[in-house]
Structures are given as C-alpha cells and as structure tokens.
Amino acid sequence: MAVSFALLLFFVLNGADGSLIVGGRDAAPHSRPYMASLQVRGQQNCGGALVREDFVLTAAHCAIPMSYSVVLGADSLSGNEPTKQEFRSVKSIPHPSYDGHSNDIMLLKLDRRAQLTKEVQLISLKTDRVRTASQCITAGWGDVGDNNTLPNRLQEVNVTILPQLTCGRRWRLVPITRSMVCGVGARVFQGFCSGDSGGPLVCDGAAAGVVSFSGRRCGDPRFPDVYTRVSSFSEWITSVLNNN
C-alpha cells in the first residue's frame, strides 16, 4: 500500500526522535568522554558530542522551546558519579536551512565552559567524506528494546557505512542527499533508536555524522539509519564557533 511522503516522514522523525541503541552493548565506562546527554526535567531526550568546551553538536530536530540540562562525563545517567558535569543550554543554533528533514544539525551553547578531564573530552570533526564499508560506532542512552526501555549505562553499536545509492533505493520515498550518510548494524534490528537522536557517528576517532532518522522499527535494515554528514557542514560549524 502506498504511503504519502508526508506520512512516512512523520513516522520516520517520530520514530527517531529521542532514539536509543538497540542490539548494542555496554560501552566501557567513560570510553566515550565526548558524549553528552540532553535532558528535559531529568529525562534523556537526545544525545550530542562536545566539540568545544562550551558547545555541543547535536541534531536540529532535537530543538525544544526550553533550556536543556546537558550532562557530560556520565556512564550511568541514574548513578551518582563524581565525574559528571551538568550545564544549561543557553542558546540553540540549528542550521538555517533545516527543513524538518535535511540539514538536521544544530549547535548548543552551554552556560559555561566544561572542565576537561579524563572523563570529559572534546571530539574532533571529520572533514572528509566517510568511505563506503567503513566501520564506525554510534553511542547513546536511547531505547534499547524499541519499547521505551532505557539502559542503565551508555550503549554503543558497530555501524557499517552503506553506499548512498543503496540507501536511496531502500528509502525510496525519502530523498537521501549528499549531506547524509547511511549505516546499518551487523545484525537485524541493530542500530540507533529513540533517545539517541543528535548523538555522534564516530569514524576513525572523529565525529563523522549526527544521528538523524531511521525507520518505524529501530535497526530495521530495510530502512538504514541516516546520519547528517558532518563534513558537509564544516564551514557552518566553524562560522558559528568563531562568532560565539
């Protein structure tokens, strides 16, 4: 049965918003020191990556009409870890061409600079394109069972990068542009999910993508996970950071 583009996009974005890792594994404690948890009233909403002491990179669809609590240095969000640093977001800067689908990238300015420690570190940004078949990793505190089950600890999952043409054929009704990168897990129903939105796709130790959208069922290889390609927005990111 045919599905309209608008209806499919509704399913896609609502399926990814607040995504969580399914079919992944516990990350080694504090092995992803750039990870940020974006919270609303103490609840995980989106992920992000610390790219400057006072800036977190995330997805534009994570924008909300209020300030985020941003937690850095965490392994377990519920645990009382002395490594945690908590901030407020004071300015949300989505890409000016974000249209609810493409250009899904945003920078959050924090109310002060993070103190860099072993557990809180910056991540560099990948400035070149990710090669097809590259082995990357994405991480987050999102849904682990596609059923609103949140993890006790940070989860991570391996991601294999797909050719853009293959990704476009599988999505069909959703335009996959050159500013996007697609990936799949090694197994069926393995990938990001609700609550993972905005988290980084890490390739060769650098942030290559930002979690954007997936299918109605998390990790479904028929609809590969889609990330915003960071290298396509290098100039914009540099401009925002230099002007703030």
Rank of each mutant, 00 (worst) to 15 (best):
R112T: 10
V56F: 03
D54N: 15
F233V: 08
N80L: 14
V70L: 03
Q44G: 01
D220Y: 05
G183E: 01
G79N: 14
P200Q: 06
K126Q: 15
G219K: 10
D54R: 13
C182H: 01
V157H: 02
L72Y: 04
Y98C: 05
A207M: 13
D143Y: 00
R216I: 12
S92M: 14
G205T: 09
V40M: 13
Y98D: 04
T58Y: 09
D146W: 10
V71E: 06
P96H: 08
G209A: 11
R41P: 00
M35H: 06
A139H: 08
W171A: 01
S239H: 14
D128F: 11
T132G: 01
G23A: 01
A49D: 05
N147G: 09
R170T: 02
I161N: 05
R222H: 08
V90Q: 03
M66Q: 14
G48M: 11
S37M: 08
L154A: 04
S4L: 06
Q155M: 13
R88V: 04
V184E: 11
T238W: 08
V184W: 00
N80R: 15
D99V: 12
V51G: 06
G24R: 04
S69F: 01
A28M: 10
L173H: 04
C62N: 00
S89R: 07
V181K: 00
L7M: 09
D17S: 14
G199K: 06
Q164W: 00
L122H: 04
N148E: 14
D196A: 05
Q85C: 10
S31M: 08
A59F: 06
R216E: 12
L241A: 06
N244K: 11
N80F: 14
C167I: 02
R229C: 02
G219V: 10
A206I: 01
R187T: 13
S89M: 05
L154F: 05
Q44I: 15
S134G: 07
L72R: 03
L8S: 10
L110A: 09
S31F: 11
P82L: 06
A208K: 07
S134L: 03
T238V: 12
A186L: 14
R32C: 03
C136K: 05
I21Q: 04
A6C: 00
R172M: 06
V184Q: 13
A27P: 02
N147E: 11
A114R: 08
T117Y: 09
I123S: 07
I237M: 10
S179E: 14
L162V: 02
V22M: 01
G183Q: 03
L107C: 09
S19A: 15
S31N: 06
K118F: 10
D204H: 13
Q155H: 07
Q190N: 01
V188W: 01
P33E: 10
N158C: 00
P175I: 02
R41E: 12
N14P: 00
R131W: 03
D17I: 14
V184T: 15
I93T: 15
D99P: 13
F192G: 00
M180D: 01
K126L: 15
S194M: 13
P94H: 09
V240R: 09
L38P: 04
C46S: 07
A59M: 02
A133C: 00
S102N: 15
H95M: 07
S69G: 00
G42N: 10
A114K: 05
G100Q: 04
V130Q: 04
P29N: 07
E53C: 02
S97K: 15
S124V: 02
K84W: 08
S214C: 02
S234E: 12
I21F: 06
R129M: 06
